[in-house]
Design a protein around this nucleic acid. Sequence first.
DNA 1: GCAAGGTC
Length: 872
Amino acid sequence: MAPPRVLMVAEKPSIAHSVASALSRGQMSTRRGSTEVHEFDGVFLGFNVQYKVTSVIGHVFGLDFPATYQDWKATDPLDLFEAPTVKTESNPKAHIRRHLSQEALGCGYLVLWLDCDREGENICFEVIECTGFGRNKDRSKVYRARFSSISEKDILKCMDNLVEPNKDEALAVDARQQIDLKVGVAFTRFQTAYFQGRYGNLDARVISYGPCQTPTLGFCVQRYLQLTTFKPEKFWTLHPYLIHDGYEIQLEWERQKLFDLDVATMLHKLVVGDGILEVTDISEKQESKSRPSGLNTVNLLKVASSALGFGPQTAMQLAERLYTQGFISYPRTESTAYPASFDFRSTLAAQANNPTWGSYVEKLLVDGYHKPKSGTDAGDHPPITPVNSATEVVLGNDAWRLYQYVCQHFLGSISPDLKYIRKKVKFTIGGELFHCVGHHITNKGFTSIMPWLAINEKSLPQFTKGEKLKTSKVELHEGNTTAPDFLSESELISLMEKNGIGTDASIPVHINNICERNYVQVQAGRKLAPTALGISLIRGYQSIDADLCLPDIRSFIEQQITLVAKGQVDHSHVVSHVLQQFKQKFLYFTKQIGNMDVLFEAQFSQLADSGRPLSRCGKCLRYMKYISTRPPRLYCNTCEEVYHLPQNGTIKLYKELTCPLDSFELLIFSMPGPEGKSFPLCPYCYNSPPFEGIDTLFGAGRMGNSNNPGKGAGMPCFLCPHPTCRHSLITQGVCACPECNGTLVLDPISAPNWKLFCNMCNCLVLLPQGAHRVSTTPDRCPDCDSMIIEVDFNKKATPLEDGATLHKGCILCDELLHSLVVVKHGKSFLDEVREEGAEEWEDLGGVQAAAVRKWSILRCLFEVSNGCLCQH
DNA sequence: GCAAGGTC
């Protein structure tokens, strides 16, 4: 009989690899799947078994509202508090659910190696669900490995102490998901709809609220309000000087500063009047400055922002890459304590040949490195350390600078402390006390490798107690207290950490969010300056319900779900209790929104007053206003309707031409750059495509927001199957795209650099340059069914005989035309998506192929019904 | 178009 099989699942591929390596002593075979699967034979609970170790990639599922609640207009945000929720695969393309269910087949046991935190515990139950162990297999065959580090020793040890997964901790995460989703989405939808419907120059597509992002913004605005309301105060300081051994020394006042000029002047007179300083005390003290403990994520992010100028998002991307390339250890960790088993000698030895700090490493290896400071062990991953040695040439400048810091910090953490002697000499004069301080470094310790933390050597001349010295001068210096600066990103990270806002992995996301939503702007030195929108939001919350933007809103949720994690309160009870409270807050907020609106009114202009007249509405025939700030829109004052437009390009009126379907005046949209294409669109059709399904047909909703036609991307004219309109796909489409299933369409305003562009991919066809006119004709090529085009060449540059300028033909079959066209690749709607990954691109290809099939069906239908689709 | 949390 075949030995029983044991399936083990980790949270990420790297841990599956570590676990398998440890348990198999490196004797495993690995095969690819959705994630790698490592197989080997071994002993489990005293039996010989076959092991399979694989992993998920973080959470398998995410929480969302069902489709019926996805329409922003049709759903009352208030209903979201009681709405059902659904779990959907967070990354459907990775097929993790399928992977787990397949790998679980034939396995008698499941061992869960998810990270040992609440999220990990929650993922345990996602894995149980996917593997089927929860339903039809014996639950007692599910085991939880509780490991304290990924070291071989800990992995082996915890195999002897397998426990049960903790349902309460998992439920706490479920509770948090429910609360965050419902609260965040309800507030976000409400305030977005409210303010976007009223103001024209709000430079934000969505005005979001969240229990992490909003307090994060709150910190930035709080500092901003401090600095704008700051009133400088004058103060005075007293500095006597003396000359000793030819050096002038400035003495510091024991009182430091006084805010009263009369008193300061009086004391100044007393000191000047006396004129003789008496040395009252000389002390020397051995001091030390401690080496750092291990480096965790949050500290790395702070240094990256304040010293290297990298934002948290960038820093994490660089760190992630250094990790996957094997140069540093896992970069997401809370721990600053090294595990007992940490191999310092090997880690050091790997750096011995480094040209920059190799000699320092050699010295540590010879003299002996120091035991690191204790730090805190969060039980997740060891501190961030270098793994393999690297050079700037290999890594590139940015990654190198981050890597260099990781190395310096590691070496610093096992170097001696900085030791110095601090000498303080005290003086008295005119009844006032002064002093001067000198430093003598006895051991630079870790500051040799982290020089920015060094203390400057400052020597003092020899004084003797009781010595009397003449002052050379006494200054009364006037100063001003200065306003605090904008909050620095690094300070923000500290505040977030201190207040429990976000986690090491999500802090960068929240900061990025408030930047992208245009609530704050990153200034030089990575200082965060809130925008008018950010300030109005926070001041608005403060005027309605300050709780909404205070950090306690997060701690409140955390504290409530901790009750679930500890098994003290039922999960659904906590969820409904917390949601009830937020619903009350929501109701009050919506009732009082006027308080916030007053602030918006002062900053932004009303929709009706915004923008400039651009094109006529097809319903009332009045001019609509073009609002160019994001999201770009047209607003019809009479009909009170908003029509969204494509973004990231320019919009112009298109020769006052109108759409035959609805009489709206056409616009022309041009993408930036010399090869940017232009296309006409009807504002009405674009927002409400008259041919059912055409908006989703072309995967428009999935194009990302790079150069796509924008939100509500419906139907520009190049997708319109109207048979006779001179701007439609039918009349402007020339031939099939050589590279995809799209159609090459004539760019109507590309003169004199006439071109065709594909309505799906980035294929671009340059037509004979310098022509006066290029136009489509009603005729088709008898050989290939392409549209015959007519070219009116420039008299001076015509390739035609006898100076003729007019030529008709098929660009594929006509020898002359064919020899004059060039296929290129310009900016596509899909460019950015394509860069994100080949897989995504292929999938989009699939969507397009399906779209084209559907589209040709539509066209057939259209031709049959012959234009009766005109009404909408 | 929306939250926050994993991870790539």
